[in-house]
Nucleic acid binder design. Sequence first.
DNA 1: CAGCCTCGAGTTCT
DNA 2: CTCGAGGCTG
Length: 695
Amino acid sequence: MRIADDIWHRVRKLREAIEQHNYNYYALDAPTIPDAEYDKLFQELQELEQHYPQLITPDSPTQRIGAAPLKAFSQIVHRMPMLSLGNAFKAAEVDAFDRRVRQTLGVDSVEYAVEPKFDGLAVSLCYEGGIFITGATRGDGYIGEDVTLNLRTIRSIPLQLQADGYSARSPVFMEVRGEVLMLKADFEKLNRQQREKNEKEFINPRNAAAGSLRQLDPGNTATRRLTFLAYGIGACEGGNVPRDKHSRVMDYLASLRFPVARERNVVSGATALLEYHREIEELRERLPYDIDGTVYKVNDLAQQEKLGFVSRAPRFAVAHKFPAQEAVTELLGIDVQVGRTGTLTPVARLKPVFVGGVTVTNATLHNEDEIRRKDVMIGDTVAVRRAGDVIPEVVAVQKEKRPPHAKFFIMPEHCPVCGAKAVRLPGEAVTRCTGGLFCPAQRKQAILHFASRRAMNIDGVGHKLVEQLVDNAIIRTPADLYKLGITALATLGRMAEKSAGNVIGAIQKSKNTTLARFIYALGIRNVGETTAKDLARYFGALDRLMEADAEDLQQVPDIGPVVAQSIASFFAEGHNREVIEQLRAGGVRWEEGAGTQQAKADSSAGLSRLSGKTFVLTGTLMNLTREDAREKIEALGGKVAGSVSKRTDYVVAGTDAGSKYHRAVELGIAILDEAGLLQLLQDSQGGLHSTSRNL
DNA sequence: CAGCCTCGAGTTCT
DNA sequence: CTCGAGGCTG
């Protein structure tokens, strides 16, 4: 059926009007028509589209909601990583930041783009040819969760970019970086509704926003009013995106109708930064959204590039945080917890107190020294804050309020769980239970670690189940997991047959693993994920690792006498060897190889040009994530190190390469760009089939 | 031998 | 996320 031009025209008009009103309302905070009027336009559009479904396009405002619920979020790789910012809390730290920047750039004064630091969830929005395609959470900075459908329901996110004052044509590709948050007013409204429905209230706008964005059913997200605020651009191709100043990039984003902070500004010098911070702090209460500080970025993009990055944070920007909010409460007692390696950790039990958005009841006291340093006694009145915004911490004791019956804490001489002697070695801060695996606490933790995601990755074997299995003497070691039958699980009563079946299934599935995961899963002291990988790569086979003495072990890069000794002692223990035997007999298996130990010798035979070569990755790669690049290099026998030294063979420099690049130049080390790396990888594959380039 | 960087381990709450 | 410690570099 052909659609009359006037209907087509009307639909287009309606869409434009609705997006314009969305923009006025959400980005400018200046609606020009009453809500009822807006609803009428929306309804008319919906009716027309219902009537003529062929008119529906994904960028229609009616299509913001509409997809069916998901089962799980899939992953999205950020083209340019979403790094975190360094923090400053005090004026002196801001001064130091400015001084460093000036020194590196060799100038007297630096211009900064400044803005409030929104307290929400960082997301990255991908636009292709001006159309909103996908959006993802920050995740680990490299890979995030695909929350496109939920983001589409946020009306301040443009589904299609308008032509703008800079360019009539949209960038071919653009990642827009910003924060999803809930306005204070919308948060109050949501909680009122939750209260009326007798459902749980949210603790703060940030949690409400996070909960809403992580809904699997976009329909749910749509009922919560979320807002987006842009603060920058990630990877980008084409279009007339400004390349000179960050402030111009922000103006550009605003011209594309992205909401940006109205309080943004450009200032010069450290004094002006502190002045801005003070102004924003004064404004804080009156802002429509929560913030947790201010952000300062070197405005000149060429200067930004010159400053580069240190490990995971840019050197050209810093987050100046407001002091963490503190609350005062009572310390009711100090419990002692036993960790996987037998560490005894004193934990403060607090009278519940609301601080930094959550109710805190526990706070770690780390160790005995820490308790002495802070002079904490049971019964004290203490100030508590959430350090780094997450982990609660006892800041100080109000000694004038100390009651006469306050009790001095003494670290127990015996493990509170198994009763074995607790020892504190000279020079060490921690006290450890000597019960080893006879201590049920350590045994439980060891099994939990074995099953954890990064180790054997057994779903469903969590805290509670392990507790029950060990307490009821159903299992004693990780190897016993593989002997579990469905009937054994059923004796626990609580567990339905189906979920028991799931657990058994997950255990079976975990039998196929890798040597690196297996080594990590063993829980050898001082051997984490990275060291486990190093060991697996070097030895290639478990037996060779088990036979190695401390001296052999120190041949492995990054392993010194301490770690070597931990490993050797672990395998010297008959009990550990027995568990490993049982695991193998129980069907746990992995692929073994020659290891680089041997590969090093035959690299001259041309097996792989990369064996024994050390790479350092820096900057952002376009078509590979660092993880990909790392895997590919390692697959061919190369090693990826963190920092450049004269022992480095190649530095792979992406865009925004920083200090490592400069160091490589200084040291005269071969520098590859991404294409060069891919070429090298391909050439080095020799007789192997070339893998798909994945471009 | 000092300083830098990376890794391991422990921790809270939803 | 943060701290402490181990390992490497200069």
